[in-house]
Write a protein that binds this DNA or RNA. Structure first.
Lengths: 341, 341
DNA sequence: TTGAAAGCGCTAACAT
DNA sequence: ATGTTAGCGCTTTCAA
């Protein structure tokens, strides 16, 4: 049952210290003793208590992850990548799903994360405030942010403005003039920043093309049903219908395509749609998209954080991940058109 | 920085013991003292070290969760519900994403979960073996299983055979005779059990209707693209085409519907499709489905587990969650047709 | 109602 | 190469 390292030591006929050294691999132990200790440990099914170890070493081998959504493709991918990378390095991942605008936020940042239970924290798409970030850093808990630039801590983002510009330019390059932008809800704090950046990129491109007066933007939930509703509405009137749509994320884009086909509009053909994310459904819907490669972002976040946990502080700067525009036709991947960054 | 309870005690002019009692609310403390201690704690930003507390109490306030997928709708919903319920009860959730057939499985069950870091374990859709379950139980770590019956531990499932039977009967009741079943891959351990149960229910219904010779079943990945591929294939030949399809999950069903509409087959109309899960996209696709209500399953799992953690062992039996057949037409919810259990 | 002291299981000096 | 000792920060008897 609750076997302790003392039991292992007794069984192997050594002291607790030697047993500890033998099992952890730190410090000098004779090969023969090491074997005896390891075997004794296996025989009684000993697994060290990480709590006791943490108490003395100050390291927990546990990373806290905060994320606003689990069940949206982009976030799910990041989460899978983070979990996998952490597990490979022997770290646990403790997950907090911070619903946008939730009252739990304070409790999570000031209680759950502020305890000495974590070697580091990864915040995905939550944009920690200066106070939230500062408190953790003062406690000696390094933090990296993914998807939201936070002053003073390392942040991994794509250049959302540039990506949106490239997306819009792609549609303009196809000869479109009536390009509608469908973005996320400004009211939603978790979507606000990214929404505004992508909207800005769209406006820049429209302006640069001398089409400022043609710029039109609507908002919806960043989800397939959200895109479906917005698409149904935007495409209902055949005379005022846009010929192209730049959706702020692939889920909206997919919803738009479903709505369009429902109405009898061919996509691509009658309507060009471009999204951002690189959603796994993109090929199925012949969707042109700007790949954001969430798995790479998650992996990079872990790498950066663990280097800070390991002692080397990583530069607290905003690092833009490469994104790329991918055009797909039917179910075939046609190629990389441009780097968005 | 690393403020300890001794600092709080000193600041409040009491002993560590009194400070501990005041902050935890256990044991007698004069109201005036309690206030002083709480204030002192706030002033220096004290948050107790859970590791130190765990070491003496044996409780960690931390639950391990094992799940095969994060980025599939059904699993994501369960996960969100579990996380929310645990957080509300003051528990941390440490997540292990156990890819089906992965070599990590041993390490997760025998090392990560077997340490004294968890008060309990929730296994979602992973079907722990008798050894895996037994080891944890012997360590005094209670476990509940969701979505897979495990002998000896409490398991929450829907009655998959009954649900599949009801689904098939629904199509037969609509007058269909050529009902195709599209299931998951048998080779995939994480889908094997559920696939077989649903296939069995389909066969039962076909047999009972005297249509055993009409029974046809194919397999694909349990995903939208998987359903799209299988649907494209199954519907390509207009003469041998089924008039109805029972998909083993909503993601397959949605893929089938997309494929059908691509080909020009109206759904519903030319083809009836039914799935299982209650996916959030169901309405958008006019999909008839059997709701499995993942959030309720997640919540029930937490409730059951925490009661065991709290001391009351819960019966190690298989409990079937209610599932229900929901028919949707256009975007309107028409009603509950039957209870699947 | 409070304090003193013991100890949870482990690791890290320091001795040997 | 191994053992001895002293805690890590907290909770919990047991006395007062």
């Amino acid at each position: 049952m609750g076997s302790a390292i003392a039991d292992v030591a007794a069984r192997a006929g050594v002291s607790k210290a030697t047993a500890s050294r033998a099992l952890s691999g730190k410090g000098y132990v004779a090969e023969a003793t090491r074997k005896r200790v390891v075997q004794a440990a296996e025989e009684i099914g000993f697994v060290a208590s990480p709590n006791a170890a943490s108490l003395v070493t100050g390291k927990t081998k546990n990373i806290g992850v905060v994320i606003p959504f689990i069940n949206r493709w982009f976030f799910g991918e990041i989460l899978e990548a983070i979990e996998e990378a952490l597990l490979n390095s022997g770290f646990d991942m403790t997950l907090y799903n911070l619903h946008p605008g939730s009252a739990e936020r304070d409790r999570v940042f000031n209680f759950f994360l502020a305890r000495k239970r974590f070697d580091g924290v990864i915040a995905v798409g939550v944009e920690p405030t200066a106070e939230e970030a500062g408190r953790l850093l003062r406690l000696g808990i390094p933090m990296v942010s993914v998807g939201a630039p936070v002053p003073g801590i390392r942040s991994l983002t794509i250049d959302d403005v540039a990506a949106a510009r490239v997306a819009t330019e792609h549609l303009l390059g196809l000869g479109h003039r009536r390009v509608l932008h469908i973005g996320g809800h400004v009211a939603d704090p978790a979507e606000n920043t990214v929404h505004n950046l992508r909207l800005a990129g769209y406006r820049q491109a429209m302006f640069a093309a001398g089409l400022a007066s043609e710029a039109r933007a609507t908002q919806t939930t960043m989800s397939v049903p959200g895109g479906y509703d917005a698409g149904t509405h935007a495409l209902s009137d055949a005379t005022s219908r846009p010929s192209a749509i730049f959706a702020a994320c692939d889920e909206i884009a997919i919803g738009v395509i479903i709505a369009a086909r429902r109405i009898g509009i061919r996509v691509p053909g009658d309507l060009s749609v471009i999204g951002i994310d690189g959603h796994e459904y993109a090929e199925m819907f012949s969707l042109t998209t700007i790949e954001q490669r969430p798995r790479e972002q998650g992996l990079a976040a872990v790498t950066d954080l663990l280097s800070a946990v390991g002692g080397e502080p990583c530069a607290p700067e905003v690092v833009d991940m490469p994104a790329r525009l991918v055009v797909r036709a039917s179910t075939a991947h046609v190629g990389v058109v441009a780097d968005a960054v």
